[in-house]
């Protein structure tokens, strides 16, 4: 009998939680008595960074990773920080289901000994601010924009003309209220979760970055499964992928409606202009992930 310890930082309703709970339910349904799972959510075992350490040493078996933490384990994952790497959700999904997904998974296995079970969807990032509707890169000029403290993400917005600032996510709301920052960039679901729309007047659907949920399993624990169980685990992970993609589509549509109803302007910017302005960023990110890898990735996505 297989025993799997699953853990996630978030609580019910969050995309990473949906990914892991769907995985658990699907696996229980298909494998029945062959597998027992323990499920720790709500940070009872620790935050995502703590869980990432535990899965590396095998103190837990499976966790979903939705933050920059993956790039800290394997610099190839910084490729996801390339703005407009994908033309949209559809292209990103197709790429992750195909060769690109396989290459990324193999890379994480090699660099961090973590087996990627599947890539779910956290969402696409948009820009919100309190100054003006952002239609072209020129509208970003001088905007004090909060980004996560990821060097590639900060560099990207510096290149686009904004003044990127770091704040921990928990401080962003007060930062926006007090004017320490003018805007920030996150998936719509995160904007809702942290009430950031209450301190903003414009949202621009730039969809500049696609963030996957990387569902990983400890490498040795994965290798210890027999072939039949490996197949069942992968199938269950696919169920998680479907659930998060569905959730992402539903919640994006609902949130755009909700934010508009709350009085925010939600605009579709000139993506072509942004893609052009983002060209120089590609070279910087190629330096991080190696130019060969960048070229290879772009070949697989086209």
């Amino acid at each position: 009998q297989t025993q799997l310890r699953l853990a996630v930082e978030t609580t019910s309703g969050d995309p990473t939680h949906v990914m892991l709970s769907t995985f658990r339910d699907a696996l229980q349904a298909s494998a029945g008595d062959q597998v027992t799972t323990t499920f720790n959510d709500g940070g009872s075992l620790g935050d995502e960074n703590a869980l990432a350490e535990m899965v590396r040493v095998g103190a837990v078996d499976v966790i979903p990773m939705g933050s920059d933490g993956v790039a800290a384990l394997d610099s190839h994952f910084s490729v996801f920080d390339t703005p407009f790497l994908f033309s949209g959700k559809e292209q990103a999904r197709a790429a992750l289901d195909g060769e690109f997904g396989d290459v990324m998974a193999a890379s994480l296995r090699e660099n961090a000994d973590l087996e990627v079970l599947a890539f779910g969807e956290l969402g696409v990032r948009v820009i919100s601010n309190s100054k003006r509707a952002i239609m072209t890169p020129a509208d970003l000029a001088g905007l004090k924009l909060r980004t996560p403290s990821s060097p590639t993400r900060m560099m990207a917005f510096q290149t686009l003309g904004a003044a990127p600032t770091n704040l921990p996510l928990g401080e962003v709301y007060m930062g926006l209220r007090q004017g320490v920052i003018d805007g920030q960039e996150n998936p719509l679901s995160v904007i809702k979760e942290f009430s950031l729309h209450e301190a903003q007047s414009h949202i621009s659907l730039t969809n500049h970055i696609y963030t996957p949920i990387t569902l990983v399993m400890n490498g040795a624990a994965y290798d210890a499964l027999d072939d039949d169980m490996k197949a069942q685990v992968r199938a269950a992970a696919e169920a998680g992928v479907e659930a998060t993609r569905q959730l992402s589509d539903d919640s994006d549509a609902a949130l755009v409606e909700e934010f508009r109803a709350a009085g925010l302007t939600v605009t579709e910017p000139d993506i072509a202009a942004f893609q052009k302005a983002a060209e120089p960023i590609r070279a910087h990110i190629a330096d991080v992930v190696t130019p060969e890898f960048m070229t290879r990735v772009e070949g697989m996505i086209q």
């Binding site: 609580t11 309703g13 709500g42 928990g170 709301y173 007060m174 809702k192 979760e193 942290f194 009430s195 209450e198 301190a199």
Partner: peptide, 18 residues
């Protein structure tokens, strides 16, 4: 306000921080 525990509560429960 501001209040660190309230920020945590708002995130966990999905309530409006304002």
């Amino acid at each position: 306000p501001p209040s660190s525990p309230m920020i945590l509560y708002s995130v966990v429960t999905g309530t409006s921080l304002g």
